[in-house]
Design a protein around this nucleic acid. Sequence first.
DNA 1: AGGATTCCCGGGAGCGCTCCCAGCGAATAT
DNA 2: ATATTCGCTGGGAGCGCTCCCGGGAATCCT
Lengths: 343, 343
Amino acid sequence: MKLTLEDIGRLAGVSRSTVSRVINNQPNVHDDVRANVLEVIERTGYAPNAAARSLVSGRSGVIGLVIPSRVHAIFEDPYFSRLIQGISAASNSSGNMLSLFLFQSAEEETDLYPRVVKAGFLDGLIVTATRMGDPLLASLTGSDLPVVIVGRPDTGGVSYVDVDNHDGGVKAAVHLYELGHRKIGLLGAPVSTTAGLDRLNGFVQGLATCGMALDPKLRVDGDFSESGGYEAMQKLAKQRPDAVFAASDTMAFGALRALQEHGISVPQDMAIVGFDGMPASEKSIPALTTIRQPVAETGTRAVQVLNDLISGAASAPVVEILPVELVVRQSTDSTAPALGGRR
Amino acid sequence: MKLTLEDIGRLAGVSRSTVSRVINNQPNVHDDVRANVLEVIERTGYAPNAAARSLVSGRSGVIGLVIPSRVHAIFEDPYFSRLIQGISAASNSSGNMLSLFLFQSAEEETDLYPRVVKAGFLDGLIVTATRMGDPLLASLTGSDLPVVIVGRPDTGGVSYVDVDNHDGGVKAAVHLYELGHRKIGLLGAPVSTTAGLDRLNGFVQGLATCGMALDPKLRVDGDFSESGGYEAMQKLAKQRPDAVFAASDTMAFGALRALQEHGISVPQDMAIVGFDGMPASEKSIPALTTIRQPVAETGTRAVQVLNDLISGAASAPVVEILPVELVVRQSTDSTAPALGGRR
DNA sequence: AGGATTCCCGGGAGCGCTCCCAGCGAATAT
DNA sequence: ATATTCGCTGGGAGCGCTCCCGGGAATCCT
């Protein structure tokens, strides 16, 4: 019961070629004939064979999404959920299929290139969460496969889509300064990630434009996790800053937990700004002021850029930086009723 | 710079066919020749073209994972993260590629069948989180594509892998009974899901074996979410049960929050058993007694069953039920120091 | 009116692979 | 000694599709 172009042609009284033209929406087919062929296709439920099509066209209609090994602990991070949803939605609507590559080990990772890429299985690749000096990235950029990185990579020459982490840092610093805070601390993200680095640099620059500098004693770095934020704030709290920029919402939640245990009220005793704009940030107590990044849109844009690269509409390194937005909530609103701190 | 079998053959001084035999590990190739061919392949970095291979063999080496539209709100549920990881790991190690289908709308869903399945793009399909009476499921079982459902579907004749939700309900009931509780309530999962139904039925049966019945007034259903658990417990708390089985950890967390607000201590005033065994369940305060289900293993088994179905090693409806396990922690340990309740 | 153009349509070629069969030399059986 | 088998190898056929080219009919031009 496997239908081919030839079968459809026979049923419609035309040739293989004409059916092909109809399917691919090509011109030079008489309207009556086109309608008839379409009717037969509809009636028989015919769908062209993907392998045959891909063999001759050189296109598979599949894009890959790579999430490297080390991310597994973080995989429950809502960030990835939203990112995957954005990417999935965009590839669905652009007629692509999405192949997911989660790697448990470095071997699986080095396996990717020959088994998948060289086999011509993919039209393009989106890579997330690259480390600094990621070897996968190097092997990928050497090939002629279109690749888009989500997040700024530490090497040039490759296309990427990122949010404006630097500007987010600036915005956080300026916001805290404008609220009157002068002893402003940083609960940093790992500087082994470009996101962590950019947020740090932006924050420092933001302070600088306000005529301030970041006191090294007021900076403790975490690892993006809730417990990392908790532990970092344990140390930071001793210095008693009157405001802190936590470079991720999740770390901010950990920080809030630590502050609660210390009996330090937010925002009365200390103002907190997070980064991410996670849904949970508006439900925390107090609701978290944060730098919202458009995660799903980042995924969407990555797919669009990749499609441009594949179709040849764009070439070589395309860079796209999406804006972030300051969302002010209770955690930096000192006029708010005292909801924070001990409950 | 695209290499073909013929190229490799020329370089190795043999024919296309011999190279093919070497690549596919077939017999009847002289050892010297085999070694030589292998050397050429290694040196040139040749990888056989996936499309051509799939065209003639009828196999794509790709399995699909479908997550229907309605799940999006729940997608951040750690359950799906762990499931996806299990499925991904198993398909990686079985030499398959994984294609992810997240649907935002019903249209995308109905689109799946023609565009992907009939195109022969997939060797098999894993479907999660089916609803009762899911139309997708019906259209899929009608085809000859191997399909495995994760979670018990409401129709027969289809292969599935599930955890023993029923036994989990029994274990929860018996555990609470054995601790001496006699006014035992249920914070149920939606009975529009087979998981919710099975947990309910198991719970009722577990009580029955202890000579008890579930008082309808002591049963309130939630929707798997934290806030659903919170609201359900608001109602349930008025009846003052001395023990409650929450049919998911997430709901149990919501319930704990509600109880905390009411000043009801866990486990002193009320014992709580959850269901899932999420990582967060050991970090909650108090640590949650729960029915642990092997989520990643469920995914792994689904892939294995699917591969058996694809290879023909198994046929038609294969059913696999994985055991669950009671994990006792503070939330049902009345001898524990009073950590629960108001902090 | 006759030739050039345009619009449709059909069939050959070939994408890179696997499968099948024929051939060939060497080893074994009769 | 010839007949039979077996291990190994090469090449033809064909998977279902797209692309290209050529032919026939309808339309256009001067």
